[in-house]
């Protein structure tokens, strides 16, 4: 595998940071992004721009007007269309070198296991804990790194799960909280900040094999303009990850 003249020019500024070998690692990498909403939009845009080899996108949603304050992959003309197909079309135009697979489905256990097996890194860009915990279990059992983020209002959190090494999502949220009766409040920029940070961790996982948020959680407070970190430990009794050495 090599880089074409066009790719060398497209990636010129980042090649000056990490060089050709690292860029080839990105070109060979397959990344699964679950959810192409507020978090998934910036994750997919930056990974496509950076030259990831293949993105697999999963989402069952259709674009609604109330998505438009934060889901920056879409335009008002896309209302009513399945998000995952619109996203794939936009991303292919952004960078035709990247292979994009779009799957319009709600992630369940069976689909999670099938998709996680074939990728190098998984991104949690979901909007609910129930599906997050399904995705987490599939990642732990297939030993695939999972980059997690979640948002609400002005706030969000991010952590990376390295199965067998770091706490998993089940360690920190053993059961999904009760569902809300009203939609979650979300400031437009909050998933933007967290989604960009997720993309950044994916790039480091692919190029360097490490994330800055292994065993610690980043907590973002957009109202106060603060980032904090919380040290996390693996739960020796976690039913999902404790058996992994």
């Amino acid at each position: 595998m090599s880089l074409s003249d066009s790719e060398r020019e497209r990636y010129d500024r980042q090649l000056r940071v990490w060089g050709k070998e690292a860029q080839l690692k990105l070109k060979k990498a397959k990344v699964l992004i679950v959810g192409v909403g507020g978090l998934g939009s910036p994750v997919a845009i930056y990974l496509t721009a950076a030259g990831i080899g293949k993105l697999v996108l999963v989402d069952d949603g259709v674009l609604e007007l109330s998505n438009m304050n934060r889901q920056i992959l879409y335009t008002t003309e896309d209302l009513g269309k399945p998000k995952v197909y619109v996203a794939a079309e936009r991303l292919r135009k952004l960078n035709p070198n990247v292979e994009i697979e779009a799957i319009k489905a709600r992630l369940d256990e069976e689909l999670a296991y099938k998709l996680v097996k074939d990728v190098d890194v998984v991104v949690d860009a979901l909007d609910n804990w129930e599906t997050r915990l399904i995705l987490n279990k599939a990642c732990v059992e297939n030993r695939k790194p999972l980059v997690h983020a979640g948002v609400e209002g002005w706030y969000g959190q991010l952590m990376t799960v390295i199965p067998g090494k770091t706490p998993c999502l089940n360690c920190i949220m053993p059961a999904p909280p009760p569902p809300r009766e009203t939609p979650l409040p979300i400031v437009p920029t909050t998933p933007g900040v967290l989604g960009v940070l997720e993309a950044n961790e994916v790039i480091k996982l692919v190029i360097e094999g490490r994330s800055s948020f292994e065993g610690r959680m980043l907590v973002y407070d957009g109202l106060r303009g603060e980032f904090s970190t919380i040290e996390l430990k693996r739960n020796p009794n976690c039913p999902v990850c404790s058996k992994l050495g």
Partner: peptide
């Protein structure tokens, strides 16, 4: 704390407790 003793978890000198509502949205 669910993996400890829940609300009956014993707290010792120097322990650190961190509390927050994690964001569920995306």
């Amino acid at each position: 704390l669910q993996f400890k003793d829940g609300t009956r978890t014993r707290i010792r000198d120097g322990d650190e407790i961190a509390i927050f509502p994690p964001g569920g949205g995306g």
